[in-house]
Amino acid sequence: MFQYIEKLGATTIYYLRDIGRMGLFLLQSFAGVFSHPFRFRETIRQIKEIGSSSLGLIAFTGAFTGMVLGLQGYYTLSKFGSEGALGSAVALSLIRELGPVLTALMVVGRAGSAMCAEIGIMRNSEQLDALECMAIDPFRYLITPKFLATLISVPILTQFFNLIGIAGGYLAGVVLLGVNPGAYTSGIEQSVVNLDINLGIVKSFVFALLIVWICAGRGYFVHLIRGAGFGAEGVSRVTTQAVVYSSISVLLWDYLITAVML
């Protein structure tokens, strides 16, 4: 009985500490923006890294998502004789929901996992200790550029996803199934309002923050995570954990933001 309570207490303390650490990590990452000298070039390099590693994937997923929406939308709408609304159905689904969510999930898979593994390996091979010993702030030097780069890249990639997706919907609906092209484009113009666009943008920023926070943070604390083990195994476990946690958080926050902003 006592053992059970003791275990429960230890677990509670562990999770509270973990949350505290992660909170502090977030603050320090932002504080890194103001400590000098700011690493502008490294930030640009990271944007390229995150952007270019995900761009092809985003184009591919965007195109097929749009095309599927075109087909499915046509199938549903034609039952009510309102194929003309296809453009607005595709655009609204993409801009409000699928664009931000799917982009975020793709970025988690490509850039987020790589980030977590990179930082985790740096921790295990004492590279982070070495930075501290040289009196170099690891946040300013390493983490903050990744934070900013993700916050910049993800919203841009999301808009790119939306554009490609709308074009994909056009291809499926107009070119293949013969929906009136004028109806497709004017449907988008008439139905998409500022709120929809803002909702998409807010989501993409929040998702970006979740991704980089969880992925970079898990890698940074790889040595403190319970049950992860050590060495290469620890890094691989923690990377998997980062991917799972950030994907779940993206879906959870997607619901919360939609519910609040609707």
């Binding site: 390996i121 740096m122 091979s125 004492e126 590279q127 200790d129 070495a130 930075l131 010993c133």
Partner: peptide, 12 residues
């Protein structure tokens, strides 16, 4: 301080 780490700890 100067430190030589066990695994050298060069930034890779």
């Amino acid at each position: 301080f100067g430190v030589l780490f066990q695994g050298s700890a060069l930034l890779d």
